[in-house]
Design a protein around this nucleic acid. Structure first.
Lengths: 336, 336
DNA sequence: CTGTTAGCGCTTTCAA
DNA sequence: TTGAAAGCGCTAACAG
């Protein structure tokens, strides 16, 4: 039973009016064009009766607006980005947009192909979590025609609208917690990706330990993003060997996986080690030990990003590019 | 610097050939239409030089294929659906499709509006996680024009292609684990939503306890989906009051939240209570206690769903509708 | 107040 | 082997 799609001309024909009139009425411009009350009612009734659904492709082709926002995250399966996607979806929906997404896996080639697709699809705007070397990615450059807002991280040397969080402060505070609790030697764990947020967090770590007199030098383990588990196992082993008693992770996945490894291999040590991490996934609240962490304001960030983007789309921002930094919060949990 | 989009006619003009020729070449139909080797090369070179990107809206309008798969999940922020979305994205991308998503929040009105949008946007196919009463939702009925595949759950009385998991077996096994460990009185927790997967899981629970001689009657707590926390607190309190020593949760969110509540309010009891849950979120592995659970084959389900859908889109399935049930697996973890 | 019509950029049939 | 032209469904400018 393949029911034909109803189009404007079907309604027009049945009513003996022109397509133009029908279009005007159905797009809510009846009054503006002073179309008769009864006419409008007739049209709407007929559209309802026939269950008319506008063909958005045709409309978009004509108007040049697709009503789509493209979202490029690192990985939609990562709950942090999943939540981000959800908040963006909500806000976009409020503003009359749909969201199309893609996961870059921190790979600039993948990101490039995602952005190309968005471009081809004429999305009205793009929200993107930049990757390493993203300034080289086509579609990220300034003269791009599609309004773009970065979220979560910056893109080297690129002056674009941006929504992120106070990474530096977060890292400082997390490490200060450890130091105040009396931990003497803290190691930091980060991916081998040059990402602004990670670097700011590392700087925060360095700042925090520098504030303490007669302290240790920074110890940073750079984990290969393409071989995380194996690398992390080695790094943790090394950290313990050199008698680190504090561990600082720059994001949720490093924190979670490390927790898993620690529980499996160094269960007895767990009571003596202080672990803190960026991000606040559910695990950190229910695990043993529970993990003190820094929660990013994902909801506000996401909302703000959409708001900014829609502003840009409507050209209301006078081309001034805004860099918004929202405050995260420390989630203090007991150490054992 | 608003660089104009390059279109076919631009290339054609610069090369003094017709748009038709350019189109044929760029869509890889050069040979098929016996277009000259040199001509083809010239066109491709020019397209490259000008950085031509096809306008997919125009193409879609013409061909009637959008290249979009619509995905309607319950909530993309739920890691279970986040992972599903990711696997679907990967597979869809392999098949040349992009994914547009929407979260229904288990609300048939929201789902309806999501499906309407998909319809308006001429998506080529839809993968949907049905909600309660989804058979009443416009766009879910059989005579719908857009190929649709259900995932995760069935939709009452609707004979549609479906990919799900062996919910009944999973529930039986989870409860048998508890029973074999010697737990005597198990309560089941479910949302007050009539969803096929939940019902199958409840039936599994009932079956498992019926298999034991001289046992207790089923105890089912139905949690209001719109007021989860408060309801769950009460339900757990009641369960403990009537001396249940086993708790069975039909999905991850119920399991996780209950774990949280139990840890906060009944810490001492935790060692005496056996908890098992559907789904295998990260928490269950790192929490105290660790939670024995049933892991659904999300990756296979997602892949299969896309495969099925694309088959339907290409009409290769001869309209036979397939109901695929993939096997999950028991994740056994120590009880305390 | 309503009708007519020219495209939006692309694909595809038909003609040359 | 290539060009010309119709038309996908809609919007918006213009005419009446």
């Amino acid at each position: 039973m393949t029911t034909k799609r109803i189009k404007l001309s079907d309604i027009a024909r049945e009513l003996n009016v022109s397509v133009g009139t029908v279009s005007l009425v159905l797009s809510g411009k009846a009054k503006q064009h002073r179309i008769g009350e009864e006419m409008a009612k007739k049209v709407i009734a007929k559209a309802d009766e026939l269950d008319y659904q506008a063909n958005i492709m045709a409309r978009s082709l004509r108007t040049g607006k697709s009503g789509i926002i493209g979202l490029a995250v690192a990985d939609i399966a990562n709950p942090y980005f999943g939540r981000m996607a959800r908040y963006i979806e909500n806000e976009a929906s409020n503003m009359g947009y749909q969201v199309m997404f893609g996961s870059s896996d921190e790979d600039s080639n993948k990101l490039s192909s995602i952005l190309n697709t968005f471009h081809s699809r004429q999305v009205d705007g793009i929200i993107v979590v930049p990757v390493e070397n993203c300034e080289l990615v086509g579609g990220m450059s300034n003269n791009d025609t599609i309004p773009t807002v970065l979220i979560d991280r910056e893109c080297n040397n690129l002056q674009t609208d941006l929504v992120c969080t106070n990474n530096f402060d977060g890292a400082v505070q997390l490490n200060e917690v450890l130091l105040k609790k009396g931990y003497k030697k803290i190691a930091a764990f980060v991916y081998n990706l040059r990402l602004s947020n990670f670097e700011e967090r590392l700087n925060g770590y360095k700042k925090a330990i520098k504030n303490v007199e007669g302290t240790f030098n920074p110890i940073v383990f750079s984990i290969d993003f393409n071989n995380v588990e194996e690398n992390l196992v080695k790094a943790l082993e090394e950290a313990l060997k050199i008698r680190c008693d504090g561990l600082f992770f720059v994001n949720n996945s490093l924190g979670i996986l490390s927790l898993k490894i620690m529980r499996k291999r160094y269960k007895k040590l767990l009571t003596k080690i202080g672990m803190v991490s960026f991000d606040n996934p559910e695990v950190f609240d229910l695990s043993t030990p529970r993990i003190t962490c820094w929660e990013q304001p994902v909801e506000e960030m996401s909302k703000k990003a959409v708001e900014l983007l829609v502003g840009k789309i409507n050209n209301k921002n006078e081309d001034k590019c805004q860099q918004i930094k929202l405050k995260g919060k420390l989630i203090l949990r007991d150490f054992q």
